[in-house]
Nucleic acid binder design. Structure first.
Lengths: 110, 110
DNA sequence: GCCGCTACTGCGTTCTGCGCAGTACTGTGC
DNA sequence: GCACAGTACTGCGCAGAACGCAGTAGCGGC
C-alpha cells in the first residue's frame, strides 16, 4: 500500500519529533524515521523538509566535519521549532481522533 | 491551523467510511464530513474524490431527481469499495500507531 | 424577476513527497 | 592508483490531491 499521500503534512511533524531532544543531520534523520516505522520515506523528502523547516525559522543549522565521509549538516529545534512541534502535535491528535471516530462510528455523521 | 495537507490520502478513507452503510450524494457527503469534524473540507475536494473512487470502480452511482433542487447523484459502496475501505482503514491505523509512537517516544528512533 | 439554497462540473493553482542524477569525501580491495 | 561501495547533501522536474473560484441549473419565496 502506498503511504505517500498519508505523509503529506505529517512529515514535518515526524521530523520535528525526531529532532526533539537530540540534533541530527539529514542522512541520520532518514535512518531514524525508517527505524521508527516510516520505512518508505524518501531521502529527498526529508532533506526537502529540513530545508523547508529551516527556511521557516524552526531549525538551527551547523556544519560538522566527519571522519567517515562528507561534512554533516546538523539541524536542531529552536524555540519556534518547539512551539511548532507542540502545535502540530495537537493538530495531529485532533485530526486522528476525528478520523478514529468517523471510522468506528460513521453514524455521527448520518 | 491548516489541515489541508493532513487530508491527503485520508479523504478517500473518510468518504468511504461515510458511505458505508448508507448511500449518499455529493452535497450530502460534504455535510456529513463537516458534521463529523472535518469542517474545513472543500466541496470540490469531495466531489473530486467521489469521481475518483467511482472511476476506480469502488462506487456505484445512480441519479435521483429531487423536489428541492437539481437532481442528486447518489453514490454507494460496492464489493470493491468495501474491500478498499477495509484495507485503507488498516493502513490508516498502522500509520496512526507509528506516528503516535514517534510522538510519545522519539527514542525508538534514536 | 431576483435572490438564496441546493447540487454538480471544470479549470488552474499550490503544496509536498518522490525519483533520479549529480557532486563529493572516505575507506577497502584489486 | 583506481574502481567501487558507503556516507552525505543538492537540484530538477514530475505527480497526486486538495482547494478556490467560476459557471450551470433547478427550486421556492419575496
Amino acid at each position: 500500500m502506498d503511504t505517500t499521500q498519508l505523509l503529506k503534512g505529517v512529515l514535518d511533524l515526524a521530523v520535528l519529533a525526531v529532532l526533539d531532544g537530540e540534533d541530527g543531520y539529514g542522512y541520520d534523520v532518514v535512518r531514524r524515521l525508517r527505524a521508527a516505522g516510516l520505512e518508505e520515506v524518501g531521502d529527498a523528502s526529508v532533506y526537502g523538509t529540513l530545508r523547508r523547516l529551516y527556511a521557516a525559522g524552526h531549525l538551527t543549522s551547523y556544519v560538522v566535519p566527519s571522519a567517515e565521509g562528507p561534512h554533516r549538516k546538523y539541524y536542531g529545534l529552536n524555540v519556534s521549532g518547539r512551539a511548532q512541534l507542540e502545535m502540530a502535535t495537537k493538530t495531529w491528535h485532533g485530526f486522528a481522533d476525528t478520523m478514529a471516530a468517523l471510522l468506528t462510528d460513521p453514524e455521527v455523521a448520518a
